[in-house]
Nucleic acid binder design. Structure first.
Lengths: 109, 109
DNA sequence: CATACATTTGGCTAATTTACCAAATGTTAA
DNA sequence: TTAACATTTGGTAAATTAGCCAAATGTATG
């Protein structure tokens, strides 16, 4: 691995790491249909609002989401929607691992 | 987020997390053209061989790679090659963040 | 202006991750 | 069988991360 490559792989790992958390994956998926207010995330998940805010900061710093303040509220959007395409492949990894295709539907015996 | 969803997102996050390390991303890319011996990874990167071994264990437990022992050596393969397709999108995130969308298309000056 | 609301920031602790070294394991060759 | 080789496992210290609470910031409304 050359130093050039090292730098590139570190940058890539930073992006993946930003996404590699259950709450942050959930947030990304919520943004599939368009922008959402922070307050909507807070309502939708059982975690402190300051924790949500920190997750959003992680996603923003990675370049995955963008934010815009309008009035009292802050609205987030997916800056690079192709990250949602990861999910199919991730499910394939999970299913492959379980040796069956049931896990994707939650219908495992 | 329902408990069903919670479980699903945790599983997904586990897969992404397994991939979210520079050395492990490099390993995955090395496997693009087919199987590789552990010894080849050790030669290719400036890190202790026990560390490489642990990275390989992480990838294996996530279901991303498979291993096969043949003689003294152990050979690894990509079990689910679609993970390599993440790279284009990840580069798009990085480029977008840097304010240029060129690298994704390979058309940078 | 004072208050209420929405979100971010700071501070702290507990849990997790990474890297190295040393030692253990399994496999072939002398 | 002993020695050498390839890889994994165990142990440990340093760094990072995630969560909560409390406090600070910025914005609209009474």
């Amino acid at each position: 691995m050359t130093e050039q490559e090292q730098i590139r792989f570190e940058a890539r790992a930073r992006v993946l790491k930003a996404l590699a958390h259950p709450t942050r994956l959930w947030i990304a998926e919520q943004l599939a249909d368009g922008e959402r207010c922070v307050c909507e995330f807070v309502d939708g998940v059982g975690v402190d609002f300051s924790t949500i805010s920190k997750h959003l900061t992680v996603l923003k710093q990675a370049g995955i989401v963008a934010d815009e303040k309008r009035g009292k509220q802050v609205w987030y959007t997916l800056k690079v929607p192709c990250v949602l395409n990861f999910m199919n492949c991730i499910e394939a990894v999970i299913d492959h691992k379980n040796g069956n295709a049931c896990a994707a539907t939650g219908a495992c015996p």
